[in-house]
């Protein structure tokens, strides 16, 4: 949040997450190396490391891409989302080691500088089996570098969340480039169908998860609600909102979260200032709306973070009539206090 930036905002959870991640990565590299040495004892150390780090990066990239839709489809995956940035940076570092070793092995011993050799040594764009797949990998690595280098909250503030998110959507372009890099590179010399099958299964799984999550999100955004004469829109019944939770509806071209807490109702823009997290999927903690992604907090009646933090989100007027909830779809400036609608617990409306 908006106070002094730290290199990493460590918490016990993040430390455990990183320990598990580091352990899994080290375990994978050791197992891969052992299995490869047993199956292909003639392999050189450089080739072994290139393949070990390349496949590790590919697996991590699939995990990075799967966590988002999995968390949308099932809240039990949310904890994996909290520290996804560390997963992404780890994936970039594994890809960087793979790229650096490959560039050294294949391009460092010629007359031209390694990067010049990488770009110029193969221009067979008309051949599938001889396609310059290394350039595809380099392009993907540049995208992954930009994402890793801008993963700190400083960049989220400087770029603003929508621009930051758009930049980080580049991961899908990087994924496409990497799939092509593997298909046109390693798979061309591979006799076993194992790698091709695993890559295909990975692509299908990632596409399937995104389609399933996207369908669910699109259904929410398609709901149309007519405004009454006073401009207020009927959203739901009071009893459809659980205590400390929210009902999310799309109003004014964006989602609105209507929270119920302590016999009152308040409505905020659903878009958290931090990474545009879905506030309406969070809950009230210590009297504050708490984003499920990274714990950013806002006072429900004003949309302002409690001091010393300074984040603010737009607010909306709410009223309750006959235990039906109505929201004015016209947003108020971020941080504008709005009197909550009072809910009578014994029936009627406030």
């Amino acid at each position: 949040m908006s106070h002094g930036y730290q290199a990493v905002g460590w918490s016990p959870f993040k430390k455990r997450y990183d320990l598990v991640l580091g352990g899994l990565l080290a375990g994978y590299l050791a197992l891969f190396s052992l299995a490869t040495l047993l199956l292909r004892p003639e392999i050189t150390a450089e080739t072994l490391l290139i393949r070990a780090f390349g496949t590790a990066a590919l697996l991590l990239l699939h995990a990075v891409l799967a966590i988002g839709p999995l968390a949308r489809l099932d809240g039990r995956f949310l904890p994996l989302l909290y520290n996804r940035r560390h997963l992404g940076v780890t994936m970039f570092l594994a890809a960087l080691v793979h790229g650096a070793l490959a560039t050294f092995q294949f391009h460092a011993l010629g007359d031209a500088p390694p990067l010049v050799s990488l770009l110029a040594s193969n221009t067979r764009l008309d051949s599938l089996s001889q396609f310059p797949f290394q350039q595809l990998g380099l392009a993907a690595l540049l995208i992954l570098f930009l994402m890793a280098a801008t993963s700190h909250d400083f960049w989220l503030a400087q770029l603003t969340a929508p621009v930051w998110k758009a930049l980080h959507m580049g991961v899908y372009l990087a994924y496409a480039l990497i799939v092509a890099h593997v298909a046109l590179g390693a798979l061309q010399d591979e006799r076993s169908p194992l790698l091709a099958g695993a890559l295909g299964a990975g692509v299908v799984a990632i596409a399937g998860l995104h389609l399933a999550a996207g369908r669910r999100e699109a259904a929410l955004d398609r709901e149309r609600r007519a405004a009454g004469a006073d401009g207020f829109v009927e959203v739901c019944g009071v009893d459809e909102i659980a205590e400390g939770r929210a009902r999310v509806v799309t109003l004014g071209g964006e989602r609105v979260a209507v929270f119920r807490y302590e016999g009152r109702l308040s409505a905020l823009s659903n878009v958290c200032r931090h990474q545009n997290g879905p506030l309406g999927e969070g809950r009230i903690v210590d009297g504050c709306v708490t984003c499920p992604w990274h714990g950013y907090q806002y006072l429900p009646a004003s949309g302002a973070s409690p001091p010393p933090f300074s984040e603010r989100v737009p607010t909306f007027r709410v009223r309750v009539v006959d235990r039906r909830v109505f929201v004015d779809p016209r947003p108020l400036p971020a941080g504008t206090p709005v009197a909550p609608a009072v809910v009578s617990e014994s029936g009627g409306g406030g």
Partner: peptide, 17 residues
């Protein structure tokens, strides 16, 4: 303003970006 009270580690970690 959040950079003023930021740590030295923060400055190193944003350097590549």
């Amino acid at each position: 303003p959040s950079a003023r009270a930021g740590s030295r580690g923060f400055r190193w970690i944003v350097l590549p970006g």
